[in-house]
Amino acid sequence: MLRALYTAATGMKAQQLFLDNVSNNLSNINTTGFKRSQVNFQDLLYSKRYIAGSESAQGFEIPAGIQLGGGVRTISISKVFSQGNHVNTERELDLAIQGKGFFQIQQSDGSIAYTRDGSFQLNSKGEVVTADGLPLSPSITITNATEISIGTDGTVYVKGSDPSGTLQNVGQIMLTMFPNPSGLDSLGKNLYLETMASGSPIVTVAGEQGTGEIYQGFLENSNVETVTELVSLITAQRAYEINSRAISASDEMLSTINSMAR
């Protein structure tokens, strides 16, 4: 019964973390480029009373042993980088990636972060920046433009005040891929950082090596599915209740034993 108390407690802890993760997914359902997180569980060590295949007292082989599990633990929470739906905004600097790539963003300390959020703007210097003012890498500057055109390969053209209406190439938006994107470190602010688990970044032109194409005038919605998360919410709640009932049942049995001892 004491074993049941501790085992059920691990279940309650795991379901609490599961519920926290579901809550985070639902709270970011309208966050541009957000990727939902998935909780992965693992059973704990087993206490083995009898080992399957061992010999019984009568000399026969035991076909199935006795193993008592110690509960459950959360082994990882990984990002699911499935494609989100695109929404048409008709803004010239709103960009969506159809594929596995990431935009490169230069942070204030000079390091590079990565994002799927393509809601870019121009700062006072004409640099293409994020909503937090962090510039694209490599930097692209647009000044005195009457029209901005961005190709699916990330090539940026602008039309200035020149009466001829000639398009001028002002830069190239590069995309980055990772061998294991689930290993990226979530920094917040829609940014990710490279880690040893993610592998080294592969920088290439959009449309090459599976990075995907860039679509101007679109943004990528979160890949969170409301129905799926609500089902997970109910599952976590019910599993938490069942584990708490196991603790209550163990407590009642212990109370009964104590009453017998008196």
Rank of each mutant, 00 (worst) to 15 (best):
I150R: 00
L191T: 00
K159E: 06
N243V: 11
N223A: 07
N258H: 10
T7E: 08
R73P: 00
I150D: 01
I257A: 08
A145H: 07
Q16M: 09
G165L: 07
N223H: 04
G212Q: 00
G154H: 06
A64R: 13
E208T: 14
T226V: 15
A145L: 10
S119P: 03
S47A: 15
E90I: 13
R245K: 15
M1W: 07
M253H: 06
T31Q: 03
M253S: 11
Y114V: 02
E252W: 03
E55D: 04
L230Y: 08
D20V: 06
Q209Y: 11
I257C: 02
S198H: 12
E61S: 12
V22G: 00
M174D: 08
V170T: 03
M1N: 04
F178R: 01
Y50L: 13
E61P: 00
L68Y: 14
N223F: 02
Q104Y: 03
G210R: 12
A246Q: 12
S139N: 15
S108F: 04
A239F: 04
G99I: 01
I62W: 01
A96C: 08
Q16D: 13
D109Y: 08
D132G: 01
V170E: 01
G199A: 09
A113E: 01
E208M: 10
K189S: 08
V205E: 15
L136Q: 03
R116A: 00
I247C: 02
F103R: 02
M260T: 00
G188M: 11
Q58P: 11
N258K: 11
V203W: 06
P179H: 09
E61N: 13
A131G: 10
S232I: 12
F103Q: 04
S259T: 15
R91S: 11
Q237V: 11
H86G: 01
N180E: 14
N221M: 15
Q58L: 14
A249L: 10
G110I: 06
V227I: 15
A52M: 10
A4T: 01
S139M: 15
S27V: 05
R3T: 10
E225V: 10
T89I: 07
I214Q: 03
L254Y: 04
E213I: 08
P181I: 04
A14M: 07
I202P: 07
N180V: 12
T141R: 08
D109A: 07
G217M: 02
E90K: 15
L134K: 04
M196D: 15
S248C: 05
L230H: 08
L167D: 04
K159G: 03
S54V: 12
M253N: 09
V227Q: 11
A197W: 08
Q16N: 12
F103E: 03
A206S: 08
E213L: 13
S124G: 05
R36M: 09
V231G: 06
K189A: 02
T146L: 12
H86I: 06
E92F: 04
I202C: 10
T31Y: 02
Q67M: 14
T256K: 07
L134Q: 10
A9L: 14
G118A: 10
I150N: 00
A64W: 08
G165N: 07
M12E: 03
